[in-house]
Design a protein around this nucleic acid. Sequence first.
DNA 1: TCTGGGGTCCTAGGACCC
DNA 2: TCTGGGGTCCTAGGACCC
Length: 500
Amino acid sequence: MFAAVEQRDKPSLRGKPVIVGGVAGRGVVSTASYEARAFGAHSAMPMAQARRLCPPNTAYLSPRFPAYQRTSAVVMELLAGVSPLVEQVSIDEAFVDLAATDHDLSVAGITALSRRLKADIAAATGGVTGSIGAASSKLLAKIGSDLNKPDGLTVVAPGDELTTLHPMPVRRLGGVGPATEQRLHRARVRTVGELAAVPLEDLVDWFGTAHGHGLFRLARADDPRPVVSSRETKSVSAEETFDIDVTDPARLIHELDLLSARVAARLRRSGLTGRTVNIKVRHPDFTTVTRALTRDQPTDDGELIAAQARRLLAEIPTYGGIRLLGVGVSTLYDFAQDDLFTAAGEDPPTLDFPDDPTPFPPADSSTSPGLSAALATSPSAPAPSSGSASSPETSFSSGPSSVAPPALSGASLAAGPSSLATSSAAVRVWRPGQDVRHDEHGTGWVHGSGIGRVTVRFEGPNTPIGRVRTFFVDDPHLQAADPPDWVIPSSESEADRGPE
DNA sequence: TCTGGGGTCCTAGGACCC
DNA sequence: TCTGGGGTCCTAGGACCC
């Protein structure tokens, strides 16, 4: 599709090999025009290899996503005119549920409708053609649309599904990629028909429950997947492959910050926040590792994301250089954090420490022996347009009590003044050994801590051995009197090592 | 001049909880 | 002393798709 748009917009490219993709450095081919495919170029091929294969008159172009997006929107608009139930799969693919309409669903009727639609698409896009597959399921419709590219039209009549499907190579099935294909080939299974002869137990054995059952059904054209108009976003990420492997740690941190900012901006644009920060590192030998950390509160704040990402990166050896760096956020929530809870009529799950009449030590940092910092902020309305609805980091010291908690202050500084000023929550610091609770079990001390949570170790007349419980910032047990259910640590547990 | 970028889903193990 | 069962959440990695 990218190549078709380029050839539409630049007549001189028509009839010539066109390759769209990363044209420099370590780029790969996004799309090869049919003229370029004749020389062996194809999607996902390293650009360097495509250059070796294609003749000198080949055009190598960087993608112009806005142009493709405009063309895509024109097509999607036409599809919406055909049926209210359209599932856009990508920038250039969609499923249309014709059963959600009152169209004539006979083969003749669908063929006529498809012809009209193809003509409308070509006219509305200025000559970009599309291929249509029509069938009784997504599986067959998709396979049909691939059959006579470009500008193809395939209608699989009801009843013809198996005769269409079974001669095809297994690779044609959605969900069968290089790994599954290889595995099947080793088992002498090359066609869908051969796949249909494999017992379910074998498929589950080879590919696991989900994939095994999926293959078993697809091989029988048993595909009840409905057309769904919209799906919620599960993650937002950004990554970059460097032209030359990066070794300089300062440069890596800088890149991490840039990626975090990009992710945060896209989260805000979509009205999303997320709790899990992921990083991805690809080494020069192409091995790829990921690290993730789930926060207690969702955020869309680039500084906060970057702070987490830096901690995660610190776990990974980078002295050999880094080929690719990525940052992502998942465990998403639909609204900015403040909206999330006020809209639901619930209290925000953070403690409002300044007003909190807890049995804790006094919230006076100058007199409380254990409290090393208490940054209170005035409750105020969320900033109207800043998007920084995230709360400041609520963190706990885990370092030696003689030192100001470094991770802590780093995190709260990273939250930035504007973020602090717009939040109704406070940052509170606990130090190991700090006395935080007294009850019938004895006296509880901060034993360990992490972002958003703290473990308290109890000892006293009723608890001869140390008992440990983890509290979260929003845990009512931290302030309420109702008896929590105690966790009795085993002897190996860190709980018995006691406060430092 | 070897191998992009943005996603989804699944699995497996461990921690934790009741 | 020889250790359940079911559930959820989290993390890491892999396959796959466009």
